[in-house]
């Protein structure tokens, strides 16, 4: 589905990713773990074309996308939910969803606002609320829902649980699992290991812009030494 080869990227003079490889299969949910500043967010931005890659290749469903504009990548079926959510604060919930709407896609679930309101009942109760007057958790749900309106085949989720109250984190995990059941391929970054443990099949650990470990989530779970090495203080 998604294949990354020797990806390098950064901002101006600051290089963040140093030659990074990753492959995602259809229907797989992979968690990108690592401490702050390890390059997790930059990875997702580089995949989406928001940070131009300095080197390396990205292929999505066999097509090379690392030189494309973000909107072309989105139209190929890759969706992105940024860490800061970036809700259009002047627009209502319904309008935010409308911005994300793309034509029906062969082989992907067809999402409508109605179906998304079933997945996120909170949103259904505030259709005309302006994005700027929503809580952090509601904005996070809206951001995910908005990206699903493009009927994506794969979803990039940047820190979906960050800054959310525990009960919302639970709801978020439920929603992510629901998406996985629908057959969506998901790459998410997380600092919250418990959240990642609940949803991910596979874990990749990033440190200082390089992939240091990858394997089944259960293996990481069973190996305290590994967690200690890369994740713990």
């Amino acid at each position: 589905m998604l294949e990354v080869r020797a990806l390098a990227a950064g901002y101006g003079r600051a290089q963040v990713l140093f030659g990074f490889d990753l492959a995602l299969r259809a229907g797989e949910l992979v968690a990108l773990l690592g401490r702050n500043g390890a390059g997790k967010s930059t990875t997702l931005k580089a995949l989406m074309g928001l940070v131009p890659p300095a080197a390396g290749e990205v292929h999505f469903r066999g097509e090379r996308i690392d030189r494309l504009a973000p909107w072309r990548i989105a139209r190929l079926g890759l969706a992105y939910v940024p860490e800061e959510r970036r809700i259009f604060t002047d627009l209502s919930v319904t309008e935010n969803l409308e911005v994300g709407r793309l034509p029906r896609r062969e082989g992907a679930v067809h999402w409508t606002a109605q179906r998304l309101f079933e997945l996120f009942p909170n949103l259904g109760r505030m259709r005309d609320r302006r994005g700027g007057s929503m809580s952090g958790g509601e904005q996070q749900m809206l951001s995910i829902a908005r990206s699903l309106m493009g009927n994506p085949l794969a979803l990039l989720l940047d820190e979906p649980s960050e800054g959310l109250a525990p009960v919302i984190v639970d709801a978020m995990a439920g929603a992510v699992l629901e998406l996985k059941r629908e057959g969506l391929c998901v790459l998410l970054t997380e600092q919250n290991l418990r959240f990642a443990r609940r949803v991910a099949d596979r874990a990749c650990i990033l440190e200082t812009g390089q992939l240091r470990h990858q394997g089944a989530m259960s293996a990481l779970d069973a190996d305290p030494a590994l967690r200690e090495r890369y994740l713990a203080a």
Partner: peptide
């Protein structure tokens, strides 16, 4: 705290 899990709960 650094793992951020229990701290949330």
């Amino acid at each position: 705290a650094y793992l951020g899990t229990e701290a949330l709960d």
